[in-house]
Simulated scan of single mutants.
Amino acid sequence: MTEADVAPVRAFWERLGLPGLVDVHVHFLPPPIQRAVWAVFDAAGPSLGREWPIRYRASHEDRVALLRAMGVRRFPTLPYAHKPGVAAYLNDWARDFSADVPESLWSATFYPEPEAAAYVADLVAGGVEVFKVHLQVGEFLADDPLLDPVWGVLEDAGTPVVLHAGSGPVGNDFTGPASVQRLLARFPRLTLVIAHLGAPEYAEFLALAETHERVHLDTTMVFTDFFEADGPYPRELLPRLRDLQERILLGSDFPTIPYPYAHQLESLARLDLGDDWLRAVCWENGARLLGAPGA
């Protein structure tokens, strides 16, 4: 942890008069899984398509300390299952992590498998606060029939699901808006947080948020120089993004980002959508959806 990482982040939210930040897209994973994920990034494999140096490769303890120092006062761990039989292990680990780190949300995941309906219902009954699902990595569609009872439970409970459904950074047969459109046609009251603003299918996922009052979008990596180099966010969509102010959430993808954390914040500020928009995105919306820190 260095002052160069901490100072600009604190200056950002202090200038806005905020008590800190709520970041809806942070990852903490069991060490063996984290090492495997970082190995994929180090290899710049086909699921990434480019070099991706990891800025915050450190122990869990050091990363928690850095988030605290920067003033990130609420964050999830967002485990995601990549094959059958893994979700229970990830969920047990994430539950223990949240018990030890009060700022972290009790996070969980699920996979299209026969057991999913039972373990998701148990997690919801126990008070889990957020789920993460990654269609690209898991290689399944959002409307996989095995998930029908899961989505029914989550629609009734209102538990947020951070959903990586966009085709970025590299799409496959399971990414894109189509399966999410079909899912919302059947379960229109789902509380979804579309990761990365749905990149690169920005317009399609923006339209889903405009027509479903519980669909949110997170800013993870969007507008940064790293993302803009691959495909800039269409500037003609910015007025619609401003109009959706109450359902845009700060996300970062910490720790596996190739630039300082502050760059995500600077990238949002340079959109020139106004301080009220920044306050809503970086604190108010996340605190409302996920629970205000300290509440």
Results as ranks from 00 to 15, higher is better:
residue 81 A to M: 07
residue 57 R to L: 04
residue 90 L to A: 07
residue 52 W to S: 01
residue 90 L to Q: 13
residue 79 P to N: 12
residue 47 S to R: 14
residue 53 P to E: 01
residue 77 T to I: 01
residue 92 D to Y: 07
residue 84 P to N: 11
residue 81 A to C: 06
residue 86 V to T: 10
residue 79 P to I: 10
residue 66 L to W: 08
residue 73 R to W: 01
residue 75 F to Q: 03
residue 70 M to I: 06
residue 64 V to S: 13
residue 67 L to F: 09
residue 65 A to H: 06
residue 61 E to Q: 13
residue 70 M to Q: 15
residue 56 Y to R: 02
residue 62 D to W: 01
residue 75 F to L: 03
residue 55 R to G: 02
residue 62 D to K: 15
residue 48 L to M: 14
residue 63 R to A: 03
residue 67 L to K: 05
residue 51 E to C: 00
residue 51 E to H: 06
residue 89 Y to C: 01
residue 82 H to W: 11
residue 77 T to G: 14
residue 85 G to D: 06
residue 47 S to F: 07
residue 76 P to D: 05
residue 68 R to H: 14
residue 66 L to Y: 08
residue 65 A to N: 08
residue 70 M to W: 04
residue 74 R to C: 12
residue 88 A to L: 14
residue 62 D to V: 06
residue 81 A to R: 04
residue 66 L to C: 09
residue 56 Y to K: 01
residue 87 A to D: 10
residue 46 P to L: 06
residue 71 G to W: 08
residue 49 G to F: 04
residue 73 R to N: 08
residue 61 E to V: 10
residue 91 N to S: 09
residue 46 P to C: 01
residue 61 E to N: 03
residue 76 P to T: 06
residue 61 E to A: 14
residue 64 V to A: 14
residue 62 D to C: 03
residue 75 F to T: 02
residue 88 A to E: 15
residue 48 L to Q: 11
residue 85 G to V: 09
residue 66 L to T: 07
residue 70 M to A: 08
residue 57 R to M: 04
residue 78 L to D: 05
residue 51 E to K: 09
residue 89 Y to D: 11
residue 72 V to A: 07
residue 86 V to P: 00
residue 67 L to I: 09
residue 87 A to K: 07
residue 46 P to E: 14
residue 70 M to C: 13
residue 87 A to M: 12
residue 48 L to W: 10
residue 80 Y to K: 00
residue 68 R to W: 09
residue 74 R to K: 15
residue 76 P to L: 04
residue 71 G to F: 05
residue 86 V to N: 07
residue 46 P to H: 04
residue 62 D to T: 13
residue 80 Y to I: 00
residue 59 S to V: 08
residue 71 G to V: 03
residue 74 R to V: 01
residue 78 L to H: 11
residue 50 R to A: 10
residue 90 L to E: 11
residue 76 P to E: 03
residue 90 L to M: 10
residue 71 G to C: 04
residue 49 G to M: 05
residue 46 P to K: 10
residue 89 Y to S: 12
residue 87 A to G: 10
residue 73 R to C: 05
residue 85 G to Q: 08
residue 87 A to L: 11
residue 61 E to W: 04
residue 58 A to R: 08
residue 47 S to I: 10
residue 72 V to S: 08
residue 59 S to N: 08
residue 49 G to T: 04
residue 92 D to T: 15
residue 70 M to E: 15
residue 78 L to Q: 12
residue 80 Y to C: 00
